[in-house]
Structure formats: structure tokens, C-alpha cells
């Protein structure tokens, strides 16, 4: 093991896919919308509601416009990857399963100091909260570990366990590099050279930072927010909660862009967040309503 070359970025993902697949998780692909975190994927948000078991894992590109640094900061990105695992109901050995995944990607817990440090999670825009930890590896936060208690304002019955790995951080740690752009994305094969994370994403960071902070037309952003909000409400009314939820996450992302443009005052901020939360909650409520009869029939005694 010690002789082995550390995993490349893509091998890290593939290893995690293999591992969680072997634990009975559905391996999904990223959701095709701009979101701030893996939690926004409907496979987490909506699927964590309701009584039926649900186990899945996926990579989710996450966009945080305000974290953009024009490609100049070795640790901060406006676009990065999260590896998300959701298991409902939370298995009694979830911590052991998680530690098993760290061993698979080459972290020896008798060499590296793994710790579960209290960190309760709350998403004001999703109306969600849970208790858990940030997992530290030698003082670095590598994973958020949460037992969801509420989502969209509804009690999770049963509770789902959520793991969110910060893939770039983890890869930097495993590969021992100081800049995210130096990460080995893949391994060389024959005369086909390896590619770095910078080769793939540096230009994205430079251009998207500029767009997020300087270029994005704020009038349009305001309009897009209103449009998404209206579309979400219309979809809730039309009883298509999945479509409504898409618009809720659209509104959430546009709100983040408005924040990056610095055009939302502290005062307005709370009100915008409240509007996004209403959309997310409304979508969750519509999702529950659409499924209620089926859930109650399949799980006698279960109530929303």
C-alpha cells in the first residue's frame, strides 16, 4: 500500500463509486442544474422525505459564486465537486462504513488522526437541519456527516444519514499537493500524459469568477429570480413537484449570483433567503402530497 502511487482525482471518485455501490447504493450521475451543494440534488432533498428506503451516491458539481478567487487561491474555488452519500434509514454502522471508505482511498487511521468533531448542519434555504460532525483528518475537514432531522420543514421519518466528502481537499491530501490546480486528475497511460486539475479547470475559475463578480447582468439576474419563483409556484399549483423543485434550486443559485454581485443588502438578504425557503418548502410539501397515499398504503401507520 505504501509503495502505491496515491489515487488520481478520477480514481478517487471511481474508488468511492465502487465502494458505495458495494454497500447497496444506487450510483447516480450529477444533477444537471447549478446548485450550491450536493444536498440540493433531488436525490437527497426530496428522497430524504418519506418512509421508503433510499441509498444512493453521486458526485455533484457545486457552485459557490462568492468563493471564486479568479484561479489565484490554491484552496478556494467557485466550482468544485462534492461526493454525496445518502442512506435512509441511517444504518447503525454508518460511521464504520464511512471509515471503510477512507481506508479504501488510502487513509490509514493509525497513521492519520481521524476525528468526529461536532458540527450541526442547517440549511436556511432548504428549511433543513440535522446533527452530526465534520470529520477531521489531521486537522483538516474532509467530510460533513449529518443525520437529517428535518427537510423542507418536515420531520424526516425515518432519518437519513448524509455524507458529503470535499473531493478536491481529500485528493490534495492524498496526493500531498498544496494547490488544487496541481492535482493529478488522471494517471498517464502509455504515451498519453496525465492531466492536472488546473489543465481542466483553471480557465473556468478565471472566467467564471469574472462573470460572477463583474459581468453577470444584475437586472437579468433579478428577473431570472422572479421568473424562477413564479415558475416554481405555478408548478406547485400544477402538482408537478419535481419540476417545481428544479425552479426552487434555480432561484437559489440566482440568489447566490446576486450575492456575488454585491447587489443584495444585508437587510434584503434575509428576505430573499425566506423566498427561496418558501419555494423549497412548497416543493417538498407538494412532493409529500403527491406520494402520501402510496406511502401510507405501503407503510401502515406512517404519517407525514
Amino acid at each position: 500500500m505504501a509503495e502505491q502511487q496515491p489515487l488520481s482525482f478520477q480514481s478517487l471518485i471511481l474508488t468511492l463509486h465502487d465502494y458505495w455501490s458495494a454497500q447497496g447504493c444506487v450510483i447516480l450521475q450529477p444533477y444537471d442544474m447549478r446548485v450550491g451543494a450536493g444536498t440540493f440534488h433531488p436525490a437527497t432533498t426530496l428522497r430524504s422525505l418519506g418512509p421508503d428506503p433510499w441509498n444512493c451516491a453521486y458526485v455533484q458539481p457545486s457552485r459557490r459564486p462568492t468563493d471564486g478567487r479568479y484561479g489565484e487561491n490554491p484552496n478556494r474555488l467557485q466550482h468544485y465537486y462534492q461526493y454525496q452519500v445518502i442512506m435512509k434509514p441511517s444504518p447503525s454502522n454508518l460511521q464504520e462504513l464511512y471509515l471503510g471508505s477512507l481506508a479504501k482511498i488510502g487513509i490509514d487511521p493509525l497513521v492519520h488522526d481521524i476525528r468526529f468533531v461536532e458540527d450541526d448542519w442547517e440549511s436556511p434555504t432548504l428549511g433543513a437541519w440535522g446533527l452530526g460532525w465534520e470529520v477531521w483528518c489531521d486537522g483538516m475537514e474532509v467530510t460533513q456527516f449529518t443525520y437529517f432531522q428535518q427537510m423542507g420543514g418536515f420531520d424526516c421519518k425515518p432519518v437519513a444519514g448524509e455524507l458529503t466528502y470535499g473531493l478536491e481537499r481529500l485528493a490534495m491530501y492524498i496526493q500531498g499537493v498544496d494547490s488544487v490546480y496541481d492535482l493529478r486528475f488522471n494517471d498517464p497511460v502509455g504515451d498519453r500524459p496525465a492531466v492536472t486539475y488546473g489543465d481542466v479547470f483553471l480557465a473556468n475559475e478565471q472566467q467564471m469568477s469574472k462573470w460572477n463578480f463583474e459581468v453577470a447582468d444584475t437586472d437579468k439576474l433579478f428577473r431570472w429570480f422572479k421568473d424562477a419563483e413564479a415558475e416554481c409556484q405555478a408548478s406547485i399549483a400544477a402538482n408537478v413537484p419535481l419540476a417545481a423543485y428544479d425552479q426552487a434550486i434555480e432561484a437559489s443559485h440566482v440568489f447566490n449570483l446576486l450575492q456575488a454581485r454585491g447587489v443584495i443588502s444585508v437587510q434584503e438578504r434575509a428576505s430573499y433567503m425566506g423566498r427561496v425557503r418558501d419555494l423549497a418548502k412548497g416543493s417538498c410539501e407538494a412532493w409529500i402530497e403527491a406520494n402520501r397515499a402510496g406511502w401510507e398504503a405501503k407503510f401502515p401507520g406512517w404519517t407525514a
Binding site: 441511517s90 447503525s92 440535522g130 432531522q149 421519518k157 432519518v159 444519514g161 401507520g301
Partner: peptide, 18 residues
């Protein structure tokens, strides 16, 4: 918090962590 199989109802046992 609640956790695991028993958390299908909100009446299940609560503890600081499972």
C-alpha cells in the same frame, strides 16, 4: 436527535447521537 430504523416516527428515542 433520532436515527435509524426506529426513527420512522417522531416518538422514537432521542439521544445526543445514535
Amino acid at each position: 436527535m433520532r436515527w435509524g430504523d426506529t426513527s420512522a416516527t417522531t416518538e422514537s428515542l432521542r439521544w445526543v447521537r445514535p
